[in-house]
Amino acid sequence: MKIKYFVESAYVDLFDSIKDHETLYTEKSNSWVKDFFGDREYCKESRIESYLPELKAENDEYTNVIAFYDVFKDRLNPKQASNPYLWSYLTHCEYWDYTNARWAKEGMSVDTIKQRYFCSFLTNNIEGNRVGFLRNAVARLWWMGYLSYQENRHSNPYELTKLLTSHSDISSSVLERNFSMNRNVTVGILDAILEINNDPSLAEVGVSHKTGKYEWRELCKYINRYGAVTLLDSMTSDDIKEISYNFLLENRK
């Protein structure tokens, strides 16, 4: 089947009516979405041909990322995946049950609706923004796969995805920083954490005994500062891994 997306006018009207529909976003049923549009045409078929994989809120994020990205990694490109009309259609229509069970809660704010059901993080911009795509309930599954999947990784092409999804703070700390747009940097950081975690003589990367803060957060801040003076994009993932690994161990002293 061809995957559908919202037409522009329908998307804009739905976005502008979030406040009016605030309580409806916690409903189990999405019938209000079709009622809102009435007889007008609100969606179109894209050129993307695919079935929709099942997503279950009771599964962990890693399982859902693999379920979704495995199907769409060769069917969606980054240009298509940065279209808010596509993802908003999926969260409101095809994946309402999943989005509702996974993210909806009583008293959910307009900002939360904008980022989980649309692709706008802390903005009124209907076109969405980078972090918005990383927070949308369904888009995030594709983008986390895209930024961490490694076809040629010998053990498991999703090995870094597993680490990324092991704690919600790792994914936001790493992916919501601009340096993660360069996959070498993301892979280098995650590889360093993985190496320490796989070393039985070292404690896993987690909460620092010294500072009480997440070690990966301190690492990401350090890489950010490093990137203020140095062009991180000139480095290989191994360079970034070495810098990250050394920082993490040094930070424990």
């Binding site: 980054p78 940065s82 969405g128």
Partner: peptide
């Protein structure tokens, strides 16, 4: 928005460079 970030270097003996990017990788 397309999570694209790359760097390309000029050859040491050239001051011009041709860059090609797949249009589906950017937006």
């Amino acid at each position: 928005v397309a999570e694209y970030r790359q760097m390309k270097a000029f050859d040491s003996d050239k001051t011009e460079m041709n860059i090609k990017i797949n249009r589906n990788d950017i937006n």
